[in-house]
């Protein structure tokens, strides 16, 4: 990526201020320390509530499907941030200090994203969320909508991959975890969600929600750059021929192909499965996601494993199989489990 650090830097000793990781950390301090409580106070819930009340049930359901996977996804990435902090201190990376600084900023931001969606659901969308209060990692489960679609499975997979990477994982394990988290969840699933919200906002302009999404997506941009930098470091070492690093590119490619299945299923779930009342367009959403993936893998990372054409094919196959999905029974099942868990607590 070859990013130049800022020109008028203050001298530091131990910290390498010319590092891209340092730049990402510093920009997180400057841009990522917004206060979610102040944001909701400043913009207020009133206008959003009015727009929300004017929507019909299908339109509300479409928003609820999108926001379900966001709140559960934000909590999942926040919970796994501790593992990223551990992974970046792995001896397979030459330096760790600036990476750890950036990972700590990421952890704070993911917690805040979870907080924002929690505040928003509670104060605007609660009629469509009879169930969302349980901590999905402490004896609770994800929201039934999340559990029913690919996103739910993807977040669980993320936990496994991050644990493997953090607990003495080799470079291929680290690459797989970073691909799933930074390319898959943040780079495609979340960014695809922003694409969807932009379209849905045209007919349902939820102002506060849009502001929140703008701050969140700006934070995510730095997380994605961070992940791509990590992957680039591992790829460079593989290309230098270092034995421990062989298999990194393949791991990235394989994980991306696995993830496109979860992501495409989620795209179908929030659009065509409910007749897309707010006009997102399932194929355009998937195409946008595939293009973002192509940019990251073949433009930024210049991956030799796989190709953009093969990726588009995998994405088309995923579209085919998503269209056969039926989510209602799964939602019902988890609805029941969720109620039991709520009653038990």
């Amino acid at each position: 990526m070859g990013m130049d650090a800022s020109t008028d830097q203050i001298k530091a000793g131990r910290i390498d201020t010319s590092s891209t990781y340092y730049e990402l950390y510093q920009k997180s301090v400057e841009l990522g320390t917004w206060d979610a409580e102040k944001l909701v106070h400043k913009v207020g819930f009133e206008d959003d509530r009015e727009v929300w009340e004017g929507l019909n049930d299908n339109e509300k359901e479409q928003w609820a499907r999108l926001i379900s996977y966001f709140i559960d996804g934000e909590q999942a990435v926040a919970a796994d941030a501790r593992r990223i902090m551990k992974t970046v201190s792995s001896p397979y990376f030459d330096r760790s200090m600036e990476k750890e600084m950036m990972a700590s900023a990421l952890a704070l931001e993911e917690a805040k994203h979870t907080q924002f969606f929690d505040l928003y659901i509670t104060n605007v969308m609660s009629d469509k969320f009879p169930q969302y209060e349980l901590d999905s990692r402490r004896g609770g489960i994800q929201i039934p909508r999340t559990e029913a679609c690919g996103a739910g499975e993807m977040f669980e997979r993320q936990g496994t991959l991050q644990a493997q990477a953090a607990h003495g994982g080799d470079p291929a394990d680290i690459a797989r975890a970073a691909t799933n988290y930074h390319i898959g969840v943040e780079g495609i699933l979340a960014r695809g969600g922003y694409f969807a919200k932009n379209r849905m906002m045209q007919e349902a302009p939820l102002k506060l929600l849009n502001k929140g999404f703008q701050f969140i997506s700006t934070d995510e941009g730095r997380h994605i750059t961070f992940g791509l930098e990590l992957l680039q470091e591992l790829i460079e070492k593989e290309r230098e021929g270092l034995p421990d690093y062989q298999g990194v590119e393949n791991a990235i490619w394989e994980q991306a192909i696995e993830d496109i299945g979860y992501i495409t299923d989620t795209a179908y779930f929030i659009t065509a499965d409910i007749d897309d009342p707010l006009d997102v367009d399932f194929s355009e959403l998937v195409n946008r996601g595939a293009r973002l993936a192509g940019d990251m893998m073949f433009d930024t990372l210049d991956l030799d494993a796989g190709s953009a054409t093969e990726f588009m094919q995998a994405s088309a196959d995923a579209m085919e199989s998503a269209q056969g999905s039926d989510y209602d029974d799964v939602i019902d099942k988890y609805d029941h489990i969720y109620s039991q868990k709520m009653a038990g607590d």
Binding site: M1, M3, E23, K27, N198, Q214, E220, T225
Partner: peptide
């Protein structure tokens, strides 16, 4: 600039560089 490109040189901030709330 950093809001838009996260240091990459390309406007890839879908949430801001896409459309806003009903324009």
């Amino acid at each position: 600039a950093y809001i838009l490109d996260s240091g990459t040189g390309r406007a890839n901030n879908e949430g801001v560089a896409g459309a806003a709330a009903a324009d």
